[in-house]
Design a protein around this nucleic acid. Structure first.
Lengths: 241, 241
DNA sequence: CGTTAATTTGAGACCATTCAATTTCGGTGG
DNA sequence: CCACCGAAATTGAATGGTCTCAAATTAACG
């Protein structure tokens, strides 16, 4: 990767759980990265296609989604800089979901073969990546719970808390005001609601003084209130250990 | 493990994706397994507890679940014999969800340390386990979609198709009649519905001649109809490759 | 400053929930 | 073998959260 600082967020996250040696970092940086930029809404991975590359998010936001038979979309996770976007797809042979840019995205692309070689030769990196994928998995589980057993106000509160907590943990934002990349339609697709009901629910959260959200700026005015309403407990994010 | 045949379903599943050598199998069989039996409903893992062992399901059915603030339960996945129940919990330090027996369960228990040693020394086993956890992950994603963007008839149809497909793929049942371990209340907890509405929805599926379900026996009378209704595409199960 | 996307509003319909009561089923003890 | 029991399944009626559809308003952007 031409600009090594792009890997800093990655190292920072991994170091919290796995000790990376200088050689580990060198092996990562020495990989055949290529930097690319994608426009908002463009697809990075398409369901059903064979996988050949793996993408690391440097700047911008991306999300995973699946489409159902009537054309409705369910967003499955949101990704922030410093995260790999499709480890899952890369290590399996055929993509089982779509990955799309939420905003303009700068990414580092590596070939599957280079990735596999790195995983084979660097045990610490392998462990870090595996843990990453286990944490992804934990987030999916929480999303099942969120759309399955919470009402609209709780679902949206939970989503906002998760994003704020992850951004803060990654050192990208440290409140009280966040750059918030989701439109109301996208919030709806994350929470299994309609855009109309999402709009009404956001209004109700604003009316209660929990948040203020406009012009792509979110501020969480009452963290305790919002996280309690949304039944948010950050254990599932495994920020430490 | 005293009875080596217990590991057959595991080998069979892994062999579909990773070539296991005789030494690999020996290393697995030689681990310090202990066989235990748990009663229906008993907890194998509790959210929030530090993890120390890993459990392999030999006989019976189990499930993962999380509870929300008002006490409601969301089931996150169902597990069938031959699967590891809590790899995710074991490799992280604190369990982020509960694992519970659906029926009386016979399991093989191994200590985390023995598991980590196996993973460090046997690359093929490591790869097989990682793929297992990636497929788990894929199933979670599909469940997010199921509860997020499908109506009651679709959700239940999809669940029934998934279980049938996995049982068949594991060589445990080969329809048209399946031993079906879920009560209607549990189906409800899988699909984010209430038990009452689950009951009515099952009746509607029966009325349409898609299934017959009673006395813990499920038969899928019209696979094509049920899978089309439930928008079921088994790609996400990654049965092959 | 025009054009399109995003947000907001209203009213009515519907899917799913709630609560309570009843029936059926599976297992147990006399 | 039948009576009994609790769990599971079923039914009814009323309520409600969310959806649908359509239109209006506001914000974003070149």
């Amino acid at each position: 990767m031409d600009d090594f600082s792009s890997l800093e967020p990655l190292y920072r996250r991994w170091q919290r759980r796995v000790a990376l040696s200088a050689e580990d970092k060198r092996a990562i940086a020495d990989m055949a990265w290529s930097r690319r930029v994608f426009a908002r809404d463009s697809y990075l991975v398409r369901e059903g296609e064979p996988t050949s590359v793996c993408t690391y998010l440097i700047h911008g936001f991306a999300f995973r989604q699946k489409l159902v038979s009537d054309g409705a979309r369910q967003i499955i996770s949101i990704h922030i800089p410093g995260e790999f976007l499709d480890l899952q797809n890369s290590l399996l042979d055929v993509a089982d979901h779509n990955v799309q840019c939420l905003t303009r995205c700068e990414v580092g692309v590596i070939h599957k073969s280079a990735l596999l070689e790195l995983l084979a030769s660097r045990p610490n990196v392998r462990r870090a990546m595996w843990l990453d994928s286990l944490i992804d998995s934990s987030i999916f589980r929480e999303w099942v719970v969120n759309v399955g057993r919470r009402d609209a106000r709780q679902r949206i509160s939970h989503l906002l808390c998760e994003l704020a907590s992850r951004l803060k943990s990654a050192g990208l934002e440290d409140g009280p005001i966040y750059d918030f990349p989701l439109t109301q339609e996208q919030i709806a697709d994350c929470t299994g609601l309609t855009a109309v009901h999402t709009n009404r629910t956001l209004q109700s959260l604003r009316r209660d003084g929990l948040i203020s959200l406009s012009a792509s700026k979110l501020s969480i005015l009452d963290w305790d209130g919002l996280s309690e309403l949304g039944d948010f407990n950050e254990r599932y994010l495994h920020h430490s250990a």
